[in-house]
C-alpha cells in the first residue's frame, strides 16, 4: 500500500488541506481496478468511517496481499476543512464539491479540487462514491444510480443491498461525480449512507460488507464473503411518500428498515407547547420504510417517510 498525494491547497491561517489516496496495487494485471471516494461533505461521517475501515481491512485484515487482485484506490476524505469544523460544504464559499465535476483547473477553488480528484480517479473500471442524502432524512443504505444511459444496474446488484434507487437524471445531477465518472467510462455507483453524526455500527457494517462483496464478486479481491440481498430496483414512481400536514415535535415510532402494514402508526407529531399528540402518521401501504425524517422538530409539508410497497 502506498499513500499518494492527490491535491494540496493552502489557507490564510489553517494548515494546508491535503487530499490523500491509499493505493493498493493488485497482483493480477488482468484484474479490474476500482476507486472509492469518501467524504466530500463535512457531514459525511459514515462515508469517512467506511472508507477508512476499508483501508484498514485491505492493509491489515485481508492477511495475504495476493488476495488483492486489482488496483484499489481509496480516498477517505476530500473535504477535511469542512469535516474538522462540522460544516457541510466548502467552509469559505459554501459550495458543494460534488456539484463541481468534472472540475476545472483554472476555476474556483472547489472546481480545482474536483479537477485534481477527477484526474486521480479517471480511468478506473469501477467507481464507488460514498454519499449521504441531501435532505433531512435517514435511510437504509442503498445504491443510487441516475438514469443517464451509462448506468450499470447489474453491477450495482453485486453490492447486495436491499435497494437500488434508479433515479431520473435532473440538470443538477449533470455536475455530480457519478454522472461525470460514468461519462468518462467508469462504472460508477453512489452508495447512500445514513446521515447520522454518530456512527451506527449496524449500517456501517452493512455498507462495509456490501463493498467487500462488490470487490469480491467483481474480481478485485480473492476473498470469500456471504451473499447479501437480492436487490430490489425501484424508480421514484414506486416510492410512496408521506408528508407532515402539521408542524411540531416529531417522534418516529418505526424507523427506516422496518416492515410495516398499511395503517400502522409509524410516527407522531406532538404540539410543541402543550404536549398533545396532534397527528399520527399512518403507513400508506404494506411495505418497508426506506427513509425517515431525522430531526426532532418538523415543519409543515416536510417529506417525512418514504416507503417501498410490497404485496
Amino acid at each position: 500500500m502506498k499513500i499518494v498525494e492527490i491535491a494540496k491547497f493552502t489557507s490564510l491561517n489553517r494548515a494546508p488541506l491535503v487530499i490523500e489516496g491509499y493505493l493498493f496495487e493488485g497482483s493480477d494485471p488482468e484484474a479490474p481496478s476500482v476507486a472509492v471516494v469518501g467524504a466530500m461533505e463535512g457531514k459525511n461521517i459514515l462515508p469517512l468511517y467506511t472508507a477508512s475501515k476499508l483501508v484498514d481491512f485491505l492493509k491489515n485484515k485481508i492477511q495475504n496481499e495476493d488476495k488483492i487482485k486489482g488496483n484499489i484506490l481509496i480516498i477517505p476524505s476530500i473535504n477535511s476543512y469542512a469535516l474538522n469544523i462540522n460544516e457541510r460544504f466548502w467552509p469559505l464559499d459554501k459550495t458543494d464539491i460534488n456539484m463541481m465535476f468534472p472540475g476545472y483547473e483554472l476555476g474556483e477553488t472547489t472546481q480545482r479540487i474536483a479537477k485534481k480528484v477527477f484526474d486521480a480517479i479517471c480511468g478506473y473500471n469501477y467507481g464507488i462514491i460514498l454519499e449521504s442524502r441531501d435532505d433531512l432524512s435517514n435511510c437504509i443504505p442503498y445504491v443510487k444510480l441516475f438514469k443517464s444511459g451509462f448506468e450499470d444496474i447489474e453491477g450495482a446488484k453485486t453490492f447486495g443491498f436491499r435497494l437500488i434507487s434508479h433515479k431520473e437524471l435532473t440538470p443538477i445531477d449533470t455536475v455530480t461525480l457519478q454522472y461525470n465518472w460514468q461519462l468518462w467510462e467508469t462504472k460508477a455507483y453512489s452508495i447512500i449512507c445514513p446521515n447520522a453524526n454518530q456512527i451506527d455500527i449496524n449500517s456501517s457494517n452493512e455498507i462495509f460488507e456490501g463493498i467487500v462483496q462488490f470487490l469480491s464478486k467483481n474480481g478485485l479481491i480473492g476473498y470469500k464473503v456471504l451473499n447479501g440481498f437480492e436487490s430490489t430496483v425501484a424508480t421514484q414512481d414506486e416510492v410512496e411518500i408521506v408528508k407532515a400536514p402539521k408542524s411540531g415535535i416529531f417522534i418516529t415510532t418505526r424507523k427506516e428498515g422496518t416492515c410495516v402494514s398499511k395503517d400502522d402508526v409509524i410516527g407522531q407529531i406532538v404540539h410543541s407547547l402543550n404536549g398533545e399528540i396532534i397527528y399520527n402518521f399512518l403507513a400508506p401501504c404494506n411495505g418497508m420504510i426506506v427513509c425517515c425524517y431525522k430531526n426532532g422538530l418538523i415543519l409543515e409539508g416536510t417529506l417525512t417517510f418514504r416507503l417501498i410497497g410490497s404485496g
Partner: peptide, 11 residues
C-alpha cells in the same frame, strides 16, 4: 406558500 414552523411561527 406557507409552512408552519415547529414552535409557534409560520413561514
Amino acid at each position: 406558500f406557507s409552512s408552519q414552523l415547529p414552535v409557534g411561527e409560520t413561514l
